[in-house]
Design a protein around this nucleic acid. Structure first.
Lengths: 243, 243
DNA sequence: CATTTTTCATTTGTCAGACAATTAAAAGTC
DNA sequence: GACTTTTAATTGTCTGACAAATGAAAAATG
């Protein structure tokens, strides 16, 4: 009966939590300097290695950064969108691969999120976003493209679509969903015909974005989702047939 | 001229990266046991404290868990949706608070993501989700409700809406967006009239979900977004007036 | 023999003290 | 005043040790 809340965590975990709370609650502002390791060890009544373990935990979450030398120390890190991206991608990737999320579920989520962005992108995309989308479509039609390169181009296309919405929070959220799915997408072997089908749908979506027609873009995304799900189904059933 | 890639990171960071790569690439499967700290120290030619700092970094990202005692050690963690939730919420919260994302941007992202879920929720929501939504609406109409409690109820309502889509990947993605916005939402002081307006819109959305009408639900969400943006604008302009 | 208790080896958690490496500021020098 | 040297502060790393937890083997017990 020792479960529930009665488990005293590691000292280093406790200390990390205490400092993290201070950061999240705003008691410690960005770029503020934490006390030195020796002072922290004093304050928390633990040894320096224990304090260091706590600080490394925080560093792993990009909550602090450290600097050596006089007037060095640990500083509250102003987390960047890039930091957040990469963390989200690692987490999402592991979540998908280790929790055996079905391709269907992941795919549905991805396209639902993209449909959330498309209308905004149709209204606000810059010329550069549209140019990227067109360029990737051309690349997708090129012959002698490996399956992986095709997937990468696919990601680039969708990324441009999402970034066109000009909302960094959306871009950040989508990065995880789209990039984490790439390993799953790589399972699919693309035939020349399915590639042309996808590129054509991309073309329809790009046209809609160019015309500022969000609804049409969403219709294209829905068709693309159906197409992707069909391809995945074929691969899976073929694999079952083999085995 | 020592910048660029030429900066050798901490040993503990290098080791953490090496192990993380092994996990992400699938060389280390879930629940696999890592070598003991002493063995790792040997393999990497470093001392045990350094290895421990590396392991704590990984533990902070829920990539491993440790267990004491004989046949204990560090094990590759099968990351749960719950782990991912909480990580995403911390990251998103900090991102919003420290990068000075405007209320407008965050709000737009949040409602765009919710509109992505609503049609799915309309098609698949269970009775429990609908019941939760109705219950929260009743609560929101109750008198003597603090602003914070009103916000919490708001989150619960939207959470039920999202969970109704029955797609754990979407729920996970949305958790960050919705919960991270709560501090921003708490800035708003809700008058009796604005509360009734929000509750009424919630009612419309719940009706649409009950009727299985995704488009109507999205229309309701769009109106709610407008309403929320207006409230925030009022608060901000009032604050400017005060100062 | 079966079962319970005890012992024990393994492994993580924590501590203390030391030295190296880095770096900004202070002191010295021209 | 501009430049160089020294110094002190701080993180990074190592060594060695002990405590605490824990599962497994060994011993005791019926």
């Amino acid at each position: 009966m020792k479960n529930a809340t009665a488990r005293p965590a590691d000292l280093s975990a406790q200390i990390a939590t205490a400092i993290r709370d201070a950061i999240v609650s705003g008691d410690l502002l960005a770029d503020a300097r934490l006390p030195s390791e020796a002072e922290l060890a004093d304050q928390f009544q633990v040894s320096r290695p224990t304090v260091r373990e706590a600080l490394k935990r925080l560093a792993a979450q990009s909550l602090i950064r450290t600097q050596r030398g006089a007037s060095g120390g640990a500083f509250v890190n102003r987390i960047t969108f890039e930091d957040a991206y990469s963390q989200q991608i690692t987490t999402s990737t592991l979540l998908l691969s280790m929790n055996a999320v079905s391709f269907e579920t992941a795919c549905e989520a991805r396209f639902a999120l993209e449909r959330a962005c498309a209308p905004l992108s149709a209204a606000r995309r810059g010329a550069a976003h549209l140019a990227t989308m067109r360029r990737e479509i051309r690349r997708q039609r090129g012959p002698s493209l490996t399956d992986e390169a095709f997937c990468a181009s696919d990601v680039a296309f969708h990324r441009a679509l999402v970034d066109g919405a000009a909302n960094p929070v959306l871009s950040y959220q989508l990065a995880g969903a789209v990039e984490a799915m790439q390993p799953l997408m790589n399972m699919i072997t693309y035939t020349a015909r399915s590639r042309e089908g996808i590129a054509a749908l991309h073309g329809r979506i790009a046209d809609a974005i160019e015309a500022g027609d969000g609804a049409a873009a969403n219709a294209g995304l829905s068709d693309l989702e159906r197409e992707t799900q069909n391809l995945a189904r074929d691969v899976l059933s073929a694999r079952r047939g083999d085995a």
